[in-house]
Computed example of a mutant assay.
Amino acid sequence: MTSTDILGNEPVRSSVRFPLRLAVTLHAGDRTYEAMTEDVSANGVLFVANQLPAVDTKVEFRILMPAAIMGGKEDVVVYCIGRIVRLVERDGVTKAGAVIDEYSLKAEHS
């Protein structure tokens, strides 16, 4: 979710976004989409791909968060259920913003 700052110039985000480029597969009904994350926050994810689901589509995905990013010894898999809330297509690249409605974490043993 965004709102405008006092001067009306820049969007103000409700949570900090981290620029993470991670491969992810989105599941939307009977379709799958291969994408990369552009940024991740506690509330949502920005995906980049050639094609992504439409706004209001329910999506399920998992993100493998490397141990180095999580500050631990093991990678962590974040299982997410969310929905696409915005979609922008420009120059053959599609970006989709998704909110995360539910998530669970699991350590990934190497």
Rank of each mutant, 00 (worst) to 15 (best):
N50W: 14
D56T: 12
E38P: 03
N43F: 10
Q51A: 07
D39H: 10
P53E: 01
R31N: 09
L22R: 03
L26R: 01
V48L: 13
F47L: 07
A42P: 07
L22N: 08
L46C: 13
D30T: 06
N43K: 15
L46P: 13
Q51W: 04
V48P: 05
V45D: 10
R21Q: 12
V45F: 05
F47S: 06
V24L: 06
A35Y: 00
A23W: 03
R31Q: 11
N50F: 15
A54V: 15
V48G: 12
L22A: 03
V45E: 08
D56N: 13
L20T: 06
L52K: 04
R21K: 14
E34H: 08
G44F: 01
R31H: 12
L20G: 00
V55F: 13
V40K: 02
P53N: 08
T32H: 02
L52G: 03
M36W: 00
L20V: 00
D39P: 15
H27C: 09
F47Q: 07
A42D: 15
L26I: 08
L22H: 09
R31P: 02
D56C: 09
E38D: 15
S41M: 08
L52P: 11
V24E: 04
Y33Q: 03
H27E: 09
G44S: 12
T32K: 11
V55R: 13
L46N: 15
L52T: 12
V24S: 03
A28I: 00
N43S: 14
